[in-house]
């Protein structure tokens, strides 16, 4: 990356300047490194599971674990009350050997945490792509063409904007989660990861489409666009060559913020059992699994929550850094939950 920066320094284009400014922002660079690390570690989930010789998607109530040369069952008979219940073992703090203990089905929490991270990151990433793509198209169309197009799109955005995000997501999830959806071209099975991706992708569209529309509206009246129209440049060319590059910095600043918000939304939906469906894991579902074990085996719920908080934290700092680097004067802000 340092080579790229050095070679770009000569040209001093807006992108190079921004990149240089970002690379000087220590907090943002540390956070970028941490985020990349989180992604890599999560992607190593299958490797970890096979190395630890554990299947994080299968109940293993009768498994045993070796600790200090002694063989201990993963599910311990409860010593309280009538002794009927079972308590999973707690953290061994020994990598590859129930590092964070087991959940109430005797599954290795560490392995599930990594698989869960993979799903959480995938859903956050894919829904961010959907949100930004659709919002850009809507924002460009509404701002550039104006008239009836703008009126219809803006009214739809008004309604979506006023609809509380979680209530909209809950409505969509509960209808789709049990039966899936069949739209002819696209068929999504119940329990597919694409359901939460689409739902989260849809609900935040107005949060990006509205500011983009505002910018396009202003650009539409700017002199260089008026000149292009006067020259008879075709509309699609104006949109792609003149307007899109001018809103691209806004879009880039939105990416880490949307990733953070989508991750929180996914975890909340999964916690409410309308996001990722079992036996698949995400950080939200693991927190839900840990709820019943909160007082006996708190690490089942603590670990995924810490993972979410850390990821969201680094994404927010990265977002601030990107915003400062690209446009020190802009004031983009998203309300988080």
């Amino acid at each position: 990356m340092s080579d790229a920066v050095a070679s770009l320094r000569v040209s001093r284009g807006p992108w190079a300047t921004a990149l240089r400014r970002l690379s000087r922002d220590k907090a943002a660079m540390v956070c970028l490194a941490v985020f990349i690390l989180i992604v890599i570690v999560s992607l190593l989930a299958p490797a970890y599971a096979s190395w630890a010789n554990t299947d994080p998607f299968r109940s293993t109530l009768d498994a045993t674990v070796m600790i200090d040369g002694q063989e201990i069952p993963v599910m311990e008979q409860s010593t309280e009350g009538l002794g009927l219940g079972y308590t999973p073992i707690g953290p061994t703090w020994e990598l590859g050997n129930y590092f964070l203990g087991a959940d109430n089905q005797g599954r290795d929490v560490m392995a599930r945490l990594l698989y869960g991270g993979r799903n959480s990151l995938l859903i956050a990433g894919a829904s961010t792509v959907i949100t930004i793509l659709v919002a850009t198209i809507i924002g460009l169309a509404a701002g550039f063409f104006g008239g009836v197009t703008d009126t219809i799109l803006s009214r739809i955005l008004d309604v979506l904007w006023a609809f509380p995000v979680y209530l909209l997501a809950i409505s969509l999830s509960i209808v789709l989660i049990a039966h899936g959806i069949d739209l002819g071209l696209i068929t999504l099975e119940a329990g597919s990861l694409w359901l939460p991706i689409f739902i989260i992708g849809i609900v935040y569209i107005p949060y990006i489409a509205r500011p983009i529309r505002g910018q396009v509206l202003a650009l539409r009246r700017s002199e260089f666009v008026l000149a292009a129209i006067g020259l008879g440049v075709p509309e699609h060319r104006i949109l792609l060559r003149d307007i899109l590059p001018n809103v691209s910095t806004t879009l880039i600043v939105f990416v880490p913020l949307m990733l953070a918000i989508n991750m929180l939304t996914e975890s909340a939906l999964s916690f409410l059992s309308i996001g990722v469906q079992p036996p698949d894991a995400s950080w939200g579902t693991i927190i839900q699994d840990g709820q019943g074990l909160l007082y006996t085996r708190p690490w089942v719920a603590l670990a995924p929550g810490l993972a979410i908080a850390l990821t969201v934290l680094v994404l927010n700092v990265l977002g601030d850094g990107l915003r400062d680097a690209l446009d020190p004067r802009s004031k983009i802000r998203l309300g988080g939950d």
Partner: peptide, 9 residues
């Protein structure tokens, strides 16, 4: 950055 339901737990 903390999920509110997790903080509650």
């Amino acid at each position: 950055a903390m999920p509110v339901y997790w903080l509650g737990e």
